[in-house]
């Protein structure tokens, strides 16, 4: 198994409260990995630590050599509520931000960048909304636009924080198709995921987290009722089953 992201003894704390504790995890290259765990398990923190936007108390994060260290290698899709949707920009502006990481200091987004933004919007079927203010979108549309911004980055690793939260079933199916296609084209996808009933369908690889690493491995062998129960405390069994 080739590894895309490896964390070694990763510890992150907010104040005195540890959010992640000695986490050793290996996320495979060119696979779709789900990070699951109860609320406050440090799932988002793990993504941010990989991205390098939260300070690590100790440990390290190693990215695959192809992903390199340049800023555009990792495409990040934050939680939808992480930004102010009343901010005065259009959908097209937001997607174009994905190109900023590779612009030179005095360079502005030009024809090529605009073309790329348009293509990314087409991929998530949002072309017709390009000129809308971002606050006029529904939750699912906002999530699609966030994904388009990550696509424009031309990253090889995508980190997504609960992209399916409060999104309708149709949008979820559309997003998962886009993500599976992205994986098949040779990218690594990592999702923080909430809905345990879809884990087996969506992911090749699963990381179960509850501040410490509970289990990590291929979905078929790792996403077992025992491990889920271990991560969530009681009631693991009924969380996994689609029809209780």
């Amino acid at each position: 198994m080739e590894v895309a992201i490896e964390t070694r003894q990763l510890t992150v704390a907010y104040g005195a409260q540890p959010a992640l504790w000695n986490v050793d995890v290996r996320i495979p290259l060119l696979k779709m990995t789900g990070i699951v765990g109860p609320n406050g398990a440090g799932k988002s923190t793990l993504l941010k630590a990989i991205l390098g936007t939260v300070p690590r108390l100790s440990g390290e994060v190693v990215l695959h050599r192809d992903a390199g260290r340049n800023g555009t290698a990792v495409g990040y899709v934050p939680q939808r509520n992480a930004v102010d949707w009343d901010f005065p920009i259009t959908v097209f502006d937001l997607v174009t931000m994905g190109t900023y990481g590779r612009l030179r200091w005095f360079q502005r987004p030009g024809k090529r960048e605009r073309e790329e933004a348009r293509e990314a919007l087409a991929q998530v079927r949002m072309e017709e909304f390009a000129d809308r203010q971002i606050g006029e979108l529904s939750g699912g549309q906002q999530q699609r636009v966030f994904l388009a911004r990550a696509l424009v980055q031309q990253a090889s690793i995508y980190l997504m924080d609960e992209p399916f939260a409060s999104v309708d079933a149709k949008t979820e199916n559309m997003l998962i198709d886009v993500l599976h296609r992205l994986r098949d084209e040779g990218n690594t996808i990592v999702l923080v995921h909430h809905d345990l009933t879809t884990v087996a369908d969506y992911f090749d690889h699963v990381v179960l987290l509850n501040r410490k690493l509970v289990a990590s491995g291929a979905t078929a062998t790792t996403f077992t009722p025992e491990n889920v129960e271990h991560a969530y405390g009681v009631a693991g069994q009924h969380l996994v089953q689609r029809h209780p």
């Binding site: 941010k48 991205l51 936007t53 800023g71 555009t72 934050p78 931000m97 900023y100």
Partner: peptide, 12 residues
């Protein structure tokens, strides 16, 4: 101004 975390993520 819009998304400082994303800005950090793309290496600004």
């Amino acid at each position: 101004a819009f998304d400082p975390e994303y800005a950090a993520g793309i290496g600004l």
